[in-house]
Design a protein around this nucleic acid. Structure first.
Lengths: 232, 232
DNA sequence: AGCATAGTTCGGCCCGTGCCGAAGGGTGGA
DNA sequence: TCCACCCTTCGGCACGGGCCGAACTATGCT
C-alpha cells in the first residue's frame, strides 16, 4: 500500500548523478549547488533540477543564503539509510585505486573520516574497540552503552541520553573499508563533534578524511588507552 | 565511487510494480511468479521481466521447481533494507482503509503479523515490552540482550548467539502500525520460528497476519507475563 | 550604475524502460 | 501422446526523464 511512495523514494537514488550527490553529502556538511555540479561534472542546470527533486522528495534539506543554495542530507536517519544502501551495494573488496592521487586519498580516508556525523575508518574502529575492551560499550548482543559508558560520556561533558528526539543513542554503522561495525547514533555524533571541537582531529582538505592531531593522540591514549600506532 | 552501484540498486526499487513485489515478499515466504503477477495486476510477461531484474540485482533469490519459479527476498539483511526504506517513506499516519474487507485485514495485521522473519504488530510490541520489563532486553541505549535474556532463550532451546554469520543477534525494527521498535535480528527470527512451530500462533489466510492461539496465550502469559487482553 | 557570479527555467534531443500481446519452450498430468 | 499450465522471449509502442545550452533572474561586489 506504500509501494508508490517506496518507489518514488527509491527513484531519488536511482540516478547515478543524484546518488553521487548523496554520497558526497554523507560528509554531513552543506554543499552549494555549484559545488555539487562541479563535483560530479554536470551542468549547473542539471544539478539544479536534481536538487529540486531531492529536496521535494525529502531526502535533502536546503537553506538559501544570498545567492547560494546550501543543501545537506535531511537528517541523521536519512544519512543512515543512504549509508546502509551504499554499504549493501559494496559486498566485495573495494575497487583498486586508479591513480596515485586517488590511492593517497583512499589511504587517508581509510585512516580516519567522518561518516555523516560520526567517526569512521580505522579511527572509528579503534575508538569502538577501545570502548568495548574497557567495558564502556557492549557489542555481543547488539550495540549498547554500559553504565560506565554513560559515565565516561558525562565526564567529557556529553550527555547523549538526553533530548535528540527518537534518535537511538548508540547504533552500529558498518564501515566500508574495515568491514566492521563502529559507534554511530547520538553518542557517536556527540563524540565526533567533541573530537573536532577540542582539536583531537582536523579535517583534511575538502573531503571527509580527518587526521588525528598530536593532542588527539594524547587524549585517546589517556582516555581510552589507544596506542598511537593503531591510528596509522 | 560506488554511485553507479548504489543507483543501480535503488533503481530496482524505483518502480512501483517491483516495489509491490518486494513489499509482498516481506512476509518472508517464497512466491511464484504468477502469484506475484496476479497480486499486483500485471501481465505474466511483465512480472517475468521484473523478476529477472530483481534476481540479477541480488535483491531476490530464486528457486526453480518444476514449472514454477519461486522467488523470495535474498536474505535477512536485504529484507531489513526494504523494511527500513518502507518505514522511512511512511512518516505520517497510515491511510484510511478503503473497504470493510481492507479494514478487517488491516486490523488483523495490526494485531499480529510477521515482518520478514520476526513478529510485529501489537504481538511483537507486547513481546518486546514484556522482555524489557522482565529484564531480558535492554532498550535504553540500543537494543541488547541481557545475560538473563540469553538464559531465557536457552531455556526454550534457542541459541541465537551461535552461528548465523554476521547477522546481529538483536536489532530494533520500527513497527509501521505501532510506531515503536520491536525485537528483530537473529533472536527475533528464532523466537518467531519457535512461536509458529510450537503453535503459539498461526498464519491467517495467505497474508502476513498471524493469530495467537489459546495455547499461545497461555505460553506468553506464563513465560513473559503478557495479559491476553494486550493482544486483542 | 555596472558587472560578475549563482542559480533557475525552458526547449529540444534521445535513450532507457515499462507495458502488453503473441508466440514459443519446458514441465507435469491425463 | 496430447493437452494444460507456468513461464519466458520478442516486437512494438509510448512515456518519462536525464542531459545540455541559451536565456533569464537574483544577489553581491565595486
Amino acid at each position: 500500500m506504500t509501494a508508490s511512495a517506496l518507489a518514488a523514494f527509491a527513484a531519488l537514488l536511482a540516478d547515478e548523478t543524484r546518488a553521487r550527490f548523496c554520497l558526497a553529502l554523507l560528509d554531513g556538511r552543506a554543499w552549494t549547488a555549484g559545488e555539487l555540479a562541479r563535483h560530479v561534472g554536470v551542468a549547473p542546470s542539471t544539478a539544479s533540477e536534481h536538487l529540486g527533486r531531492l529536496v521535494a522528495g525529502g531526502l535533502l534539506a536546503e537553506e538559501r543564503q544570498g545567492r547560494h543554495r546550501y543543501v545537506r542530507l535531511a537528517d541523521a536517519r536519512t544519512a543512515y539509510l543512504v549509508e546502509e544502501l551504499a554499504a549493501h551495494t559494496e559486498p566485495g573488496p573495494p575497487a583498486a585505486p586508479t591513480s596515485l592521487r586517488a590511492a593517497g586519498a583512499r589511504s587517508a580516508m581509510a585512516r580516519g573520516r567522518t561518516c555523516y556525523d560520526h567517526l569512521a575508518g580505522r579511527l572509528g574502529i579503534a575508538i569502538t574497540e577501545a570502548m568495548t575492551v574497557r567495558g564502556l560499550l557492549l557489542q555481543e548482543s547488539g550495540f549498547a552503552l554500559t553504565a560506565r559508558g554513560t559515565e565516561w560520556f558525562a565526564a567529557l561533558g556529553l550527555e547523549p541520553l538526553r533530548g535528540r528526539g527518537r534518535r537511538p543513542v548508540v547504533r552500529a554503522c558498518l564501515d566500508w573499508t574495515e568491514r566492521r561495525p563502529h559507534l554511530a547514533g547520538a553518542a557517536g555524533a556527540e563524540l565526533c563533534r567533541y573530537a573536532l571541537d577540542s582539536g583531537w582531529c582536523v579535517r583534511i582538505g575538502s573531503e571527509r578524511a580527518v587526521r588525528v592531531t598530536a593532542e588527539g593522540e594524547r587524549a585517546l591514549a589517556e582516555l581510552l588507552g589507544i596506542a598511537p600506532e593503531a591510528l596509522r
